[in-house]
C-alpha cells in the first residue's frame, strides 16, 4: 500500500487535493456559505452537463471549437514550421522576419481582434485566424532555434562521410531538433486553445467560448460552468498528450533518462 503510494505520490496527492476542493465547493454551497449563483456547485454542474449532453449542445459546441482549434493549429504548424526552416537556412530571411516576431512577442495580439473582424467578418474565419496568430510564434521560434542550434560536431562528422545538404537536414538537423519542436508544439497547443476561446467569447454563434459568454451574459452560472469545465478538461488532455509525446521522443537525451 505504502509502496503504491510512493510510486504514484504526485498523482494520488493531486487527486486527493482536487477531490477535497470539490467537496468543499459542494458543501459550501449546500450549507449556504456561498450562493450557488456565484459559483454553481459540482452537483449542479453535473446535472446541467447531463442535460446539455442529451440536448446535443455539448457535442455541437465541442465540434465547432475543436474544428477551429485544429485548423488554426495546423495552419500555424505549417506556416510557422516553413518560416522557421527558411529562417534557419538563410540569415537574410531570419533578419527580414525578425521585426514581425518582435512585434508579435511584445504586443497583445488580441487587441487586433476588431481588425480581423473587419477583414474576415464575425465568426469562424476570424476565430481560426486568431488561433493561428496565437500559435504561430512558438512554432516559428522553436523551429528556428532547433535548426540553428544543431550540434556542429555531428554536422562535421556527417560531412566527413559525404553528407549532402538534404542529408544534413533530414538526418541530422531535423531529428536533432525533435525535442525542441515538440516543446514548441506544446506551447502552441495551449495558445491555439486560448485563441479559440477568447475569440469565441466576443464574436461567435457557436462553440465553447460562445456558450460561456452566452450563458454568462444571462447570468446562468450552472449552464456557463459546463463549457468552462470542458475547456479546462480539453486543455489538460492536450497538454498531457504532448507531454507523453515529448518523453517518448526525448528518450535518447541523457539528462531526461528517468
Amino acid at each position: 500500500m505504502t509502496r503504491i503510494f510512493k510510486k504514484h505520490q504526485a498523482l494520488i496527492s493531486g487527486i486527493i487535493s482536487f477531490a477535497v476542493l470539490l467537496l468543499i465547493w459542494q458543501f459550501a454551497v449546500d450549507f449556504g456559505y456561498i450562493k450557488a449563483f456565484f459559483v454553481s456547485s459540482p452537483s449542479r454542474v453535473a446535472v446541467e452537463f447531463w442535460r446539455q449532453l442529451q440536448s446535443g449542445e455539448v457535442r455541437d459546441n465541442m465540434a465547432v471549437s475543436l474544428y477551429e482549434f485544429a485548423v488554426g493549429l495546423s495552419l500555424a504548424v505549417t506556416v510557422g514550421g516553413m518560416l522557421g526552416v527558411m529562417a534557419g537556412w538563410s540569415r537574410t530571411i531570419e533578419y527580414v522576419l525578425e521585426p514581425f516576431i518582435w512585434f508579435k512577442y511584445s504586443s497583445p495580439t488580441i487587441a487586433f481582434y476588431p481588425l480581423f473582424i473587419a477583414w474576415l467578418g464575425l465568426g469562424e474565419p476570424t476565430i481560426i485566424a486568431i488561433a493561428f496568430i496565437f500559435a504561430l510564434t512558438p512554432i516559428y521560434a522553436n523551429t528556428l532555434s532547433g535548426i540553428k542550434n544543431v550540434d556542429q560536431d555531428l554536422v562535421r562528422a556527417a560531412i566527413s562521410f559525404g553528407a549532402r545538404p538534404h542529408d544534413l537536414f533530414l538526418k541530422v538537423t531535423l531529428p536533432g531538433s525533435v525535442p525542441i519542436l515538440i516543446a514548441g508544439l506544446r506551447l502552441a497547443v495551449g495558445r491555439a486553445l486560448t485563441g479559440v476561446i477568447a475569440a469565441e467569447l466576443f464574436g461567435a454563434t457557436a462553440g465553447l467560448g460562445y456558450s460561456i459568454a452566452f450563458y454568462g451574459q444571462k447570468l446562468k452560472t450552472n449552464e456557463m460552468m459546463v463549457s468552462l469545465v470542458l475547456v479546462v478538461i480539453l486543455g489538460v488532455i492536450f497538454t498531457q498528450l504532448l507531454s507523453l509525446l515529448e518523453s517518448a521522443t526525448d528518450a535518447w537525451r541523457p539528462n531526461v533518462d528517468r
Partner: peptide, 12 residues
C-alpha cells in the same frame, strides 16, 4: 573515413 575524438555519434 574519419574517427573523431568523441561526441560525434548521433545521440538519437
Amino acid at each position: 573515413a574519419m574517427v573523431f575524438q568523441d561526441a560525434s555519434l548521433l545521440p538519437w
